[in-house]
Amino acid sequence: MTCYKILALVALSFSLVFLGTALFGDYWISASVTHEGIWLACSGLFCSHYSSGIRFLDVTRTFIIFSCIAASSAGILAFSSFNSPFLGKFSKVLIAAILSFVSAGCVVISMAVYTGEIGKVLPNIASSHYAWSFILGWTAFPLLLIAGALFLAAHVFSPPE
């Protein structure tokens, strides 16, 4: 059904915007005058890049990038399904649903690793809290699940060809 595909594309678009903002935003953790992301740590007006080798940040970055790739591929396939619904003998909408669920899995892995590792040091930092980039990263997860479910519904309720 076209309605399900359009709603799924809307949810997928929002999740991609949220993931991109989370990936490049440097407000994952915030305190009084400092804030940190997965690429930078800033204190006042001065920012410095993290050195590679902080493994949980590497895992977080990698899985968010994988998630963006999978979600983008799902969107391209779903958008192209309006023109031709099949890729070989497979439904493009079904592949988009699978890619949306894979993307959601990558998001939950990356966010859970970050939450678990930073949670060990967060209580030691005075007046620190999770910030908006972190929240947008977690918000992308249910949106990707919704998009995958809507793509799946579009596949199930589409007339056979």
Rank of each mutant, 00 (worst) to 15 (best):
I54Y: 02
F79H: 00
E161L: 03
S84D: 12
Y130M: 07
V93C: 08
T62Y: 11
Y50D: 00
H129C: 00
F79E: 00
L122P: 01
L99D: 03
L7G: 12
K5W: 04
S52E: 11
G148D: 08
L94E: 04
L152C: 02
Y130T: 07
H129G: 07
N83Y: 15
L152S: 09
A147V: 04
F86V: 12
S13L: 11
G119W: 12
F18Y: 11
L9S: 10
S133F: 05
Y27G: 01
A74R: 02
G53Y: 03
L143M: 14
W28V: 07
W132L: 13
A154C: 05
A74T: 01
I29E: 10
S110D: 02
A112T: 12
P142D: 06
I125G: 00
P85R: 15
Y114T: 11
T2C: 12
P142M: 07
T2S: 14
E117H: 06
C106P: 03
I76E: 03
A131E: 08
L23N: 01
L145T: 10
I98W: 04
H35A: 12
H129A: 15
H129E: 11
I135E: 07
T62F: 14
G137M: 04
L45I: 13
K92F: 07
R61I: 10
V121E: 10
Y114R: 13
S73M: 12
A70P: 05
L7E: 06
A11G: 06
A8D: 14
A8F: 11
S81E: 09
F141A: 15
